[in-house]
Write a protein that binds this DNA or RNA. Structure first.
Length: 120
DNA sequence: GTCAGGGGACGTCAAGTGTC
DNA sequence: GACACTTGACGTCCCCTGAC
């Protein structure tokens, strides 16, 4: 299995939808992808009405399971990709806020110097 | 060289949530 | 209520690195 670095550069503000959504202080990273066409190799089943023998029913059950696993596999990949993006987003926000905090502290020190009475 | 430990990616399951 | 989607949790595999 070849693992490729397929990170994208999307810079969206994202947050786990069912983790912090209730708090309202964090944007969501849940972005509904448009339901794409089925991946190659997926064959649509015959309608249930056309199944007769137990073997056909078993095959249909197996096919449904494989389809579900394949979809979940892809969903998990996409979920992890979004999570990585979200973490990157948070990290860059931390960096920005740290710089901002540092500047504010410096400004505060300057103002203190200006305002403090000279003791001599 | 090899062994242990850490880390990343993956597949699967299960539970929660949204949609119709 | 059934179905689809999302995501945390878990187990597994593979690769890298440092200690021996």
């Amino acid at each position: 299995m070849a693992v490729t670095g397929d990170d994208t550069d999307e810079e969206t503000e994202l947050a786990p939808s069912h983790m912090a959504a209730a708090t309202g202080d964090m944007p969501t990273y849940q972005i509904r992808a448009p339901t794409a066409a089925l991946p190659q190799g997926v064959v649509m089943a015959a309608s249930p009405g056309s199944l007769h023998s137990p073997q056909q029913l078993a095959e249909e059950a197996t096919r449904k399971r494989e389809l579900r696993l394949m979809k979940n596999r892809e969903a998990a990949k996409e979920c992890r990709r979004r999570k990585k993006e979200y973490v990157k987003c948070l990290e860059s926000r931390v960096a920005v806020l740290e710089v901002q905090n540092k500047k504010l502290i410096e400004e505060l020190e300057t103002l203190k110097d200006i305002c403090s009475p000279k003791t001599d």
